[in-house]
């Protein structure tokens, strides 16, 4: 229904409207997109936790405290010394969760950057050139997407050997399928716009058209997807670590903490809860931010 569509073409504004005070604008935007800001808040806290882990952690994350375990070897619960309790080796869970944020963010962000570069490259080239180039690249993408990322990454890490950098690399080079598909779709849509044809008519090279004209016009969906991607990659890292082929103990990662917690949760449930909760909140944060950005970048939600 086109009832609300205006026929009014935008005329150049005679003068910019007086700028509203920044704080007022900020709170209005918070009211309009509360989930976006909740997501952003979570991520900011997460980054602070990761960066400040050495400062704010009450203990060294790998120190095994003898008073972290009861005499019968059961981890002690939350207390003044161990705010979130201790784990099966008597280590402080709060400190380990904080340090675990470093691993999660590092893997999540860097692997996403790799996804981004590969996905954008493949998607742009495939969408722009079409024909057999598109066919070949998209079949490769189909294959990548045919296997669950976790399974695929497991296989690659099994070959390379488990380490932080190998995990990061595996997720990075295998997780770009969705990005490539989305980018290709966007490129297909944008390349039909006349301003892209105009650029060709001016005599511009393909590289220039792809990266200077088309790419800036699809940046919105790419940002949204990348944000969601970070959350997803954090989960995959946790999965790998949980299965014992990711981050190796004693380095704390939420995945290997959950795995350790699985062994003790019946007698000491906090060993499972807190790393699990950290993981859920972190992933939720990225998803909220991604969805919120999608709303904001959707032209139907912005009034111009």
């Amino acid at each position: 229904m086109a009832a609300m569509q205006f026929e009014t073409p935008p005329a150049p504004a005679a003068a910019a409207p007086p700028a509203k005070p920044f704080t007022k604008k900020f709170w209005k935007s918070v009211r309009d997109f509360p989930m976006l800001y909740l997501g952003a808040l979570i991520i900011v806290l997460l980054i602070l936790a990761a960066v400040l882990a050495p400062v704010i952690s009450p203990h060294n994350p790998t120190t095994q405290f003898s008073d972290g375990l009861t005499e019968s070897g059961i981890p002690v619960g939350p207390s003044a010394k161990f705010p979130l309790g201790a784990d099966n080796l008597g280590r402080d869970i709060l400190s380990r969760v904080l340090y675990g944020a470093q691993v999660s963010l590092l893997v999540g962000v860097i692997s996403t950057v790799i996804n981004l570069v590969l996905g954008v490259l493949v998607g742009t080239v495939a969408g722009y050139f079409g024909g057999w180039v598109d066919n070949v690249l998209m079949r490769v993408t189909d294959i990548i997407l045919a296997f669950p990322l976790l399974l695929f990454a497991m296989a690659l890490v099994a070959v390379l050997g488990p380490s932080l950098w190998n995990v990061l690399f595996a997720i990075g080079v295998l997780g770009w399928g969705t990005m490539a598909r989305v980018v290709r779709g966007q490129v297909l849509a944008v390349k039909e716009f006349e301003y892209v044809q105009a650029e060709r008519a001016l005599g511009a090279s393909n590289t220039r058209i792809m990266f200077r004209v088309i790419l800036p016009n699809i940046i919105g969906p790419v940002i949204v997807l990348s944000t969601l991607n970070v959350g997803q990659n954090i989960l995959v890292e946790a999965g790998l670590s949980f299965l014992g082929i990711g981050i190796q103990p004693p380095t704390p990662s939420w995945g290997n903490m959950i795995e350790a917690g699985m062994q003790t949760y019946q007698v000491a449930p906090w060993t499972l809860w807190f790393p699990g909760l950290a993981l859920v909140i972190a992933v939720l944060g990225f998803n909220l931010l991604g969805d919120g950005l999608r709303d904001i970048l959707d032209p139907r939600n912005t009034q111009h």
């Binding site: 716009f193 006349e194 301003y195 044809q197 105009a198 650029e199 008519a201 001016l202 004209v213 800036p216 016009n217």
Partner: peptide, 15 residues
């Protein structure tokens, strides 16, 4: 040789 397009809304790069 140059081209001028029909749709003035689609033929200019919004960015």
């Amino acid at each position: 040789m140059q081209l001028v397009f029909q749709d003035p809304y689609a033929s200019l790069n919004p960015r």
